[in-house]
């Protein structure tokens, strides 16, 4: 029993959780630094001149109209898209083409996709234990024990031996969250995690994300769930036409946005 508790603490929750949440935001270090980042698809400039710093343990909600570059932006944080100018530093590691840097960054950053992207030919537990075993070389037993605890955390321990196709959308997305957490990342990226879900399943996924935020995880979430943003986000970032238009606390964004475009967009969706 004691052993399990010890492992739980070391495995599931960042070791410095207490210290992270105990310190006020301003005093924490920057875990994500983006400076003048650009990204083009052929001639089209998808992300233009974005600079943003994210503190350790901070939750940033990114929102904006479709095609505004918000997905492309967070996909650059783990190099699913390559930035073509500017600078990105993740937890002190410079994002370059160096494979070692890239491996280190991908270990630090977990990602959850709109379409879940679970591996359909593996069971739920197979999905979760794959990367820890293959990348971190965690022994199978240990990986499975951790997977079960993560499934418990997202509320579906009884689905461990099913295949993704046998689960509902909300359950699949929670498995995807558990799969990303199994690599013990410092940062979690969410790319519209609830957009492909039926309304009654959105809440269960948001609850899992809420719980995660409470543990001091650094999170970047592209989402239009404004209730979630108001309640959980430390800051909100409004993207339009590839640019970071406005960055501020939820209170400031909702009550007194500085930019007209932010106000117009909020009027449309609220």
């Amino acid at each position: 029993m004691t052993e399990t508790n010890l492992m739980e603490e070391s495995v599931d929750i960042p070791a410095d959780k207490e210290t992270i949440l105990a310190r006020p935001l301003e005093e924490r270090d920057d875990i994500i630094i983006c400076e003048n980042v650009h990204k083009w698809f052929d001639d089209f400039c998808a992300v233009r001149d974005v600079s943003m710093r994210v503190k350790r343990g901070e939750v940033v909600v990114i929102f904006g109209p479709s095609g505004s570059g918000k997905s492309t932006f967070i996909r650059m944080i783990n190099r699913l898209e390559e930035h073509q100018s500017g600078r990105i530093v993740i937890d002190g590691i410079e994002m370059t083409n160096d494979a070692r840097n890239l491996d280190a960054i991908r270990r630090e950053v977990g990602m959850v996709f709109q379409q879940f992207n679970l591996f359909p030919h593996m069971t739920v537990i197979g999905n979760i234990t794959l990367a820890p075993q293959r990348v971190r070389h965690t022994p199978q037993r240990e990986a499975e024990a951790m997977a079960l605890r993560l499934l418990e955390r997202v509320g579906i321990p009884e689905q461990a031996n099913k295949y993704p196709a046998e689960l509902s959308g909300g359950q699949q997305q929670r498995v995807a969250i558990a799969r990303a957490l199994a690599m013990r990342p410092q940062i979690m990226l969410f790319d519209e995690p609830t957009s492909a879900l039926d309304p009654e399943m959105i809440k269960e996924v948001l609850d899992a994300m809420r719980e995660l935020a409470a543990t001091g995880m650094t999170m970047l979430c592209v989402t239009h769930e404004m209730g979630f943003a108001r309640e959980v986000a430390d800051r909100m970032a409004f993207f339009d036409e590839g640019a970071l238009v406005e960055l501020g606390t939820p209170e400031q964004i909702f009550n007194s946005p500085k930019e007209e475009r932010t106000q117009m967009f909020l009027d449309q969706i609220l």
Binding site: N78, L80, D103, R106, R107, V109, G110, M111, F113, Q115, N117, L118, F119, P120, H121, L130, A131, R134, V135, A176, R179, A180, M183
Partner: peptide
């Protein structure tokens, strides 16, 4: 096989050859 599968594998830190052998190839054969 959907490109999302490769992205998920890469995001988890799997190498290129691991992604092919463990994710793309088995699904492709199936």
């Amino acid at each position: 096989v959907s490109p999302g599968q490769t992205e998920a594998a890469r995001a988890l830190g799997l190498r290129g050859w691991q992604t092919t052998l463990l994710i793309t190839l088995p699904q492709g054969l199936q």
